[in-house]
């Protein structure tokens, strides 16, 4: 049977260049993410903000390259106006340079660039802590209630219902009132501890649908322990949802922290954050608008870049909207 022998080799297809290019899931996700131009731009922008804020004034005792501190006052130069200039001379500007106080000075002569950088650091730290804590707790609660159902689910979900009735800003404000003065780490952790319910709800939905899938049935039939099924079998399948939602939580947390600090219920002076800066100089809008503008710009830059990253991740993990219908 020479005829059939010729064609039955499994590799004949590949030799003809006709097999579908096999990519691992990770590769595909990465590819889709990097094709998302806005996400890429977001990543570059966010990277820039992080590097700028942490390297300029230094962090935790490590000195940075910027020579002024966010604590020491200096002589007011030109009423504290920003010296940053970005319009080149041939366009009628004063050339591209940073100057002595690129972002200007506040009313008592503190370098506002250093202060804004400090605020940026603090806001980023709070936001990440909030996201990490909320994601961890939310995932655990969601996973357990989604997997076990029955009583566990009922209790956990009722509790989640209760928490969801309370507007996030309200509960966070109550927590911020108590822990705002204890520093950003404590504040971040505690805000995270009260805003996890929406994450739990999301994860519970995922678990509810995944627990019915064949591979879970199979694992159960083999006598795999519940804990192992949750962490080894189901959780890896929800990584996309978790990552995307955690990313968006970071963006929301930046805004939440700044809103709280603005209300005076978040980070407290002398410590600083972007929202706290805006609150402090809120009345300066008319006379010294830069005190108001810079922190605002940084809040927007952080939130916008992370939102774009989150959108890119969502597309990468769940390309449903761009899916080709067969």
């Amino acid at each position: 049977m020479t005829l059939s022998a010729q064609a039955s080799g499994p590799d004949t297809g590949a030799a003809q260049g006709m097999t579908i290019v096999a990519r691992t899931q990770g590769q595909m996700i990465r590819r889709r993410f990097f094709r998302h131009r806005a996400a890429l731009a977001g990543m570059i922008l966010f990277g820039f903000v992080v590097v700028l804020s942490f390297s300029s004034i230094g962090f935790m005792g490590v000195p940075g390259w910027w020579d002024k501190s966010y604590l020491t006052t200096g002589a007011l130069v030109n009423q504290g106006k920003p010296t940053l200039s970005v319009v080149p001379e041939f366009l009628g500007g004063s050339g591209i340079h940073l100057g002595e106080h690129p972002f200007g000075q506040d009313d008592i002569g503190v370098d506002y660039f250093a202060k804004t950088m400090r605020g940026t650091q603090q806001s980023i730290i709070v936001a990440f802590l909030v996201a990490i804590v909320a994601t961890t707790v939310g995932t655990l609660v969601g996973a357990v209630s989604g997997y076990y159902r029955g009583k566990t689910e009922a209790v956990l979900m009722r509790f989640t219902d209760v928490m969801i009735t309370i507007p996030v800003l309200v509960i966070a404000a109550v927590v911020g009132r108590r822990f705002g003065a204890s520093g950003v780490v404590v504040l971040g952790v505690f805000i995270g501890l009260v805003i996890w319910p929406s994450m739990a709800r999301l994860l519970r939905g995922e678990f509810l649908s995944l627990r019915e899938k064949e591979f879970v049935e199979a694992a159960r039939a083999l006598g795999t322990s519940a804990r192992r099924i949750i962490f080894r079998h189901i959780l890896p399948n929800t990584v996309g949802v978790i990552i995307v939602s955690a990313t968006l939580t970071v963006a929301n947390a930046v805004l939440l922290e700044s809103a709280l600090s603005f209300l005076g219920l978040g980070v407290q002076a002398p410590d600083t954050s972007l929202g706290q800066l805006i609150n402090e100089y809120r009345t300066a809008m008319v006379t010294r608008p830069w005190l108001f503008w810079w922190p605002g710009i940084f809040i927007i830059a952080i939130a916008l870049s992370i939102n774009f990253i989150g959108d890119g991740l969502r597309d990468a993990f769940d390309p449903r909207q761009t899916r080709v219908r067969a």
């Binding site: 005829l3 010729q6 064609a7 004949t12 297809g13 003809q16 006709m18 097999t19």
Partner: peptide, 18 residues
């Protein structure tokens, strides 16, 4: 075969015993 990179010749040839 993949409908993007079609093989030359008869599309069934990679699987065809004849």
């Amino acid at each position: 075969p993949s409908l993007i990179n079609l093989p030359t010749g008869c599309p069934f040839s990679p699987r065809c015993p004849l």
